[in-house]
């Protein structure tokens, strides 16, 4: 667990950055400035930040369609991310990927992914690379409860276990795969178990379920799993219970869930939980908290301005990057 003030504040800042970033994306998407689809991470900030705070720069993550939070938490540049979401040439992917495909390979961010569950086998691959190339890099593989029903989940956890791959599987159980509840005792459900972590036993790895809205709990669990993976102890599955405040995508009517349920979860706001702890323990003052919030707001506003003012890609760029070219 993080104990010194500087580290705790870094986590708070990252969570606020994600909150501010996603709120801006929500706004500009609604205004029609952002094309395509966006899937927001609002309400789940503790997981990305808790997990990525346990990593080194040369560790890897694989992400999902709901990836903005993971990427920011792993150190993704706010400006390049926002510009990519706006489809601009200054974006991470030169406007070729958009929200669902942002990557920063140099930071070990192996990409958001538009196919649910596709990040899992890719994580197996980065785990294999650590073994082949003799590095101590660990991969954190983010995926959701919906992905845990896909074959990719089964095949990857099995392979990771058999080969003792250095991977931490972080399942963000936000209770719904679009409209399908992960579990309920009565009625429709994606799986007939309450906890995704129960599946770990079938692969011979450890599995735990934790409060995904508690950044310190996430950080502690992932830290331990990373340590284990780094010292050749193999993979782990950590299920983080959480809730997405927005629909699956912006524009989702959310007719499959009650407003009361959302309100209940908003009371468990991960940022409020963490900031209250920091204030109660007198680790930060109200004044410091406000200063941080103002600083983050300004940073995201700058990024948005950068994105809005950046150039569109040139139509001539459409045929570039189909095949890899070494850049001098």
């Amino acid at each position: 667990m993080k104990e010194n003030k500087e580290e705790l504040l870094e986590m708070l800042e990252k969570m606020l950055e994600i909150r501010e970033f996603e709120s801006s994306v929500q706004q500009y998407f609604a205004e029609g400035q952002i094309p395509g689809f966006v899937h927001l991470y609002l309400g789940e900030e503790a997981i990305a930040v808790g997990a990525c705070s346990a990593l080194k720069e040369d560790d890897y993550i694989t992400s999902t369609h709901r990836g903005h939070g993971h990427l920011l938490a792993k150190g993704g540049d706010v400006k390049k991310m926002m510009a990519e979401i706006f489809g601009k040439v200054t974006g991470y992917n030169r406007g070729k990927g958009g929200s669902m495909h942002i990557a920063d390979v140099s930071l070990g961010i192996l990409g958001a992914n538009g196919i649910v569950g596709a990040g899992l086998p890719i994580a197996a691959g980065s785990g294999i690379s650590s073994q082949i190339n003799g590095t101590d890099a660990v991969t954190v593989c983010f995926f959701g409860d919906g992905a845990s029903n896909r074959g990719t989940f089964h095949e990857t956890l099995n392979m990771a276990s058999v080969w003792n791959l250095p991977i931490v599987f972080v399942c963000e159980n936000n209770m719904y795969g679009i409209s399908m509840p992960q579990y309920q005792s009565d009625g429709r459900k994606g799986q007939n178990i309450k906890d995704v972590a129960d599946r770990a036993v079938g692969y011979g790895i450890s599995g735990i379920t934790i409060d995904g809205n508690d950044v310190l709990a996430v950080n502690e669990a992932v830290n331990e799993a990373v340590k284990k993976a780094r010292s050749n102890g193999g993979p782990s599955l950590i299920e983080c219970k959480t809730y997405r405040w927005r629909g699956h995508f912006e524009g989702d009517p959310t007719n499959y869930r009650d407003d009361e349920e959302l309100e209940e979860w908003k009371k468990k706001d991960p940022i409020k939980k963490f900031s209250s702890f920091l204030l109660d323990e007198e680790i930060i003052t109200e004044k410091e908290f406000k200063q941080i919030k103002d600083k983050i707001k300004e940073k995201v506003e700058e990024a948005t301005k950068f994105a809005q003012e950046s150039a569109e890609p040139s139509p001539d760029d459409v045929t570039n990057n189909v095949y890899f070219e070494e850049v001098e």
Partner: peptide, 27 residues
């Protein structure tokens, strides 16, 4: 380690190759 017998797991074989290739290996 370098000639890896896999389980019957075509998806993880190909997807694993993608991830390994992205991270400095030549599978």
């Amino acid at each position: 380690d370098r000639v890896r017998d896999t389980p019957i797991t075509e998806t993880a074989i190909v997807g694993g190759a993608v991830g390994a290739a992205m991270t400095g290996s030549r599978p």
